[in-house]
Nucleic acid binder design. Structure first.
Lengths: 193, 193
DNA sequence: TGCATTAGAATGAACGTTCTATCTAATGAA
DNA sequence: TTCATTAGATAGAACGTTCATTCTAATGCA
C-alpha cells in the first residue's frame, strides 16, 4: 500500500491509518502516532510538515492504490458486461482485502479535513472516470437506460459500499456468490427494458 | 427536528449540527458552540453533561425524527410496490429537506464517538426494520429475488445515499423525475426474472 | 426570600508543534 | 588507515495554545 515511501513514512502512515479507524481523528494525537509507530515526534516532523499533511498523504496513497487495482480489471479486454463485472469485483475485493483503507476513504472523502485539491487529484487517479466512460458506452449501445452515467455509477458504488459495510459490521457475510449476485442486481437495474 | 427539547437545548443542538457539518468534530469546540448558539458554557453544562452527550443526543434526535417520517410513508396502505416507492421517496425527501441531518448521520453512524447502545436504540426507532419486513414480504411473494432482505435494503439505501451525496456536492441535480427513476432502477434490479 | 438559571472567568490537562542535543554514517584530507 | 568534518536523522523535553469542564457570582422569576 505504501511502497513508494521510506521506512519511517510507511510506519507513520500505517500506524495513523490503524489508529484513525479505531479511534477517530480527534483521538489520533501525534503523541499516540509516535508511540505506536515507534517514531519520535521529532522524526515525524522531519518527514511530514503537519498532522494534516499525514492524513492527506494517507488519503492520496490509498485512493491511488485502490484506483490502480480497479482500473486493471476495468481496462482489460472483454464485453461491456465482463468489464462491468470485473470492475465492481475489484472494488469489493480491494475493500475486503484492506478494510481499513476502505473505511478511511469512506469516512474522509466528504470531510473538510481533506484538501479540495487532494480530493481532486485523487479523483483523477481513481477509477471513477474510466467507470463513467464504461457506463456511457453501455448507454450508447442501449444496454443501459438513458440517464446520467455518473449518477448511476455513484448509485452502484453506494450499493457496494453499503454491502461491504454490512459485512464489516458483521451483519452479513460476503461470499463470492453473494458478490456476483449483488453485481447482477446492479446490472439488471440499469438494463434497458 | 428538536421539538421535544427546551429552547436552550434546541439552540445548542441546532448550532452543534451546523458547526459539525461545516468544520468536523475536532473543530467543534464548546466555546464555539456557546458563541454561535448564544448560550454560555455554564448553561450548556447545565443541560448536557458533556460534549459527547450533545453529539449522541443529536444522533438520537435525527435518526428518530427521520425514522418516523419514513415510516409514515412505509406503513400506509397500498401494494408492496407503492409502499416501496413511498418509503424511498421519503428517505430522499427528508435528506433533501434536512441535508445537515443527513450528512451528520452519514458521517457518524459508523463512528466510535457514538455509543453502541445509542446506535442500537436509534436503529430500533428508525425505518430499517419496517423496510426489511417489506422486502421479506416482497420475496415471499416472489416479486423480489430470493436473497438476504437486509442486505438488499442496505444496498438500496447505499444507492440513495450516494445519489443524495452527488446532489449535495453539486455533481448532479435531484428532480422528482430523477428520484422516481432511481427508485425504479432499484426495483428493477431486485425483481425476479 | 429562595432557587433555578445564566454568564463568563478560571483551571488543568492535552494538544500540535518546535527546539536542542545527540546519534549515525558517509566523506575526504593527512 | 585514521580521524576531523559534515549533514541528515532521531529523541524527547519544552512551549504556547486551545480544549472540555468547573467554579463563583450574578440574575431573574416564584
Amino acid at each position: 500500500m505504501f511502497e513508494s515511501y521510506n521506512k519511517v513514512q510507511k510506519a507513520v502512515l500505517e500506524t495513523t491509518l490503524s489508529i484513525i479507524i479505531r479511534k477517530e481523528l480527534q483521538a489520533t494525537s501525534m503523541a499516540l502516532i509516535a508511540k505506536e509507530s515507534k517514531v519520535s515526534t521529532g522524526s515525524i516532523y522531519h518527514y511530514f510538515s503537519s498532522k494534516e499533511e499525514i492524513i492527506n498523504e494517507l488519503y492520496t496513497a490509498i485512493v491511488t492504490y485502490n484506483g490502480q487495482f480497479v482500473q486493471e480489471g476495468l481496462n482489460r479486454e472483454g464485453t461491456i458486461r465482463e468489464r462491468f463485472t470485473r470492475g465492481w469485483e475489484r472494488v469489493i475485493e480491494i475493500s475486503r482485502q484492506y478494510p481499513e483503507g476502505f473505511q478511511f476513504i469512506e469516512q474522509y472523502s466528504f470531510s473538510p479535513y481533506i484538501y479540495e485539491d487532494v480530493k481532486q487529484k485523487a479523483y483523477n487517479g481513481g477509477w471513477c472516470a474510466p467507470m463513467n466512460k464504461l457506463y456511457a458506452e453501455a448507454m450508447e449501445q442501449k444496454l443501459f437506460r438513458a440517464m446520467d452515467p455518473k449518477l448511476l455509477v455513484q448509485m452502484h458504488y453506494g450499493s457496494m459500499v453499503y454491502m461491504v459495510k454490512s459485512y464489516l459490521q458483521g451483519n452479513s457475510d460476503l461470499t463470492d456468490a453473494g458478490i456476483r449476485e449483488a453485481i447482477e442486481v446492479c446490472w439488471q437495474g440499469a438494463s434497458r427494458g
